[in-house]
Design a binder for these strands. Sequence first.
DNA 1: TCCTTTTGGTTGCATCTGCAACATCTTCGT
DNA 2: ACGAAGATGTTGCAGATGCAACCAAAAGGA
Lengths: 232, 232
Amino acid sequence: MKKILKTNAYTKYPLFKGVNQNSINVIMNCFKSVEKEYKKGTYIWHAGDEAHYVGIVINGQVNIVKDDISGDRVIINTVFNPMIFGESYAIAKTSEYPVSVQAAVDSRIILIDIEKLMTPCSVGCSFHNEVIKNLVEIIAKKNIKLNNRIECITKKTIKQKLVFYLMDEMKMNENNEIKIPYNRNELSDYLNVNRSALSRVLSKLEEDGILIFNKNKFKILDYDEIKEIMAN
Amino acid sequence: MKKILKTNAYTKYPLFKGVNQNSINVIMNCFKSVEKEYKKGTYIWHAGDEAHYVGIVINGQVNIVKDDISGDRVIINTVFNPMIFGESYAIAKTSEYPVSVQAAVDSRIILIDIEKLMTPCSVGCSFHNEVIKNLVEIIAKKNIKLNNRIECITKKTIKQKLVFYLMDEMKMNENNEIKIPYNRNELSDYLNVNRSALSRVLSKLEEDGILIFNKNKFKILDYDEIKEIMAN
DNA sequence: TCCTTTTGGTTGCATCTGCAACATCTTCGT
DNA sequence: ACGAAGATGTTGCAGATGCAACCAAAAGGA
């Protein structure tokens, strides 16, 4: 876990959007934040540690893990470059992280003290406020995604979950032929259903001429039927 | 929808936590925000409107509603005093609200322009930063709640969802006898299961001596069995 | 090319749970 | 106290889906 002083190319990170590299260097110095290397399997923090930091994945990937009652760990989520993790707990003042964060592979991480981040410097660097705005925007977007997922998962049948998800994607793409970012396994995870059961439903929908698909490309054929499905 | 100039007692709102009434008055003036009265059934905004505002429920309650594909509206959520609504969409720069907000009963609402809220005044009022911090904290807490709910809902069986929820509540109360804030109907909604099916599972758990309950009070008797259930 | 691995579709079976209809108990207003 | 309305528990039934085991096709590596 040796320290590496390196501050290049941070401008591409959402947290630093709209802030030039020089300003970032000033901020990082002000935060006393540096990149650190974590070997695969080592912990960035443990559940129960005081929640002071937001982490940025510079390189590699980390798993957000929860210690089960029965002692074994469950992976809640995986975070890749260039996203951040832990921000909600640090900001919400829950005092302790309820989850651990573990390097899934050798990874480079920056930890930033949330208190320093959220409190504008007395010297009044204007870009500091930009970073705060970016952070808030990131959290707000996560919020919207979580809400979407809940709305999707709470549909009653696999058919409804699937159709809701596809329609949502199509609305965003403004196209009735879409390419989704998941394979079947990942899609079934997202919808929280069994993969083979999902497969069964997909085949049925195709057989009924409601939609066609190939790999991760989907196209809706019969919108009347889709409306019928969504309406319960 | 007549305007009412009234700025008392805002200190109790989470958004203004730690800010004194005088400062709030200054801010509200700076924001040009005032309370407005909305009659039951009228809309605070419609889906498709540009997302500029965060709303505070001063009085009454509002429904967050979504226009279904089939034309009818679904209530996504209900917001009471003193909570806020719309903040995620306004902050995330989605440009348009994807949901409408409708007064469920006669209600008093404050709408605050998010851009003004997020940009510290040039005069540099220190309390403005407090408000921003509060807003971020509110969103972060919502985030954590949403994550908890997802973790709960994605459990496979009703039994697991229920046990997960109860254990979570107990951890917070540090007591194995808890009082939950839901009646059966609301609990089944939260867990996203059928009420009678939930009732069935509850009775079975009681019959097996794993927990006892009365109204909204629950107590776990057999922790070994609980562990067994959580472990799958 | 060939072999291995990954990904995706199929199917029989058991079971969980949604649904509906009803029973019981509580709450509350008059 | 009485009746109405609301909350909660019970039960039979049907259908959806998790699961496991298998097969087929595609992808990737040597």
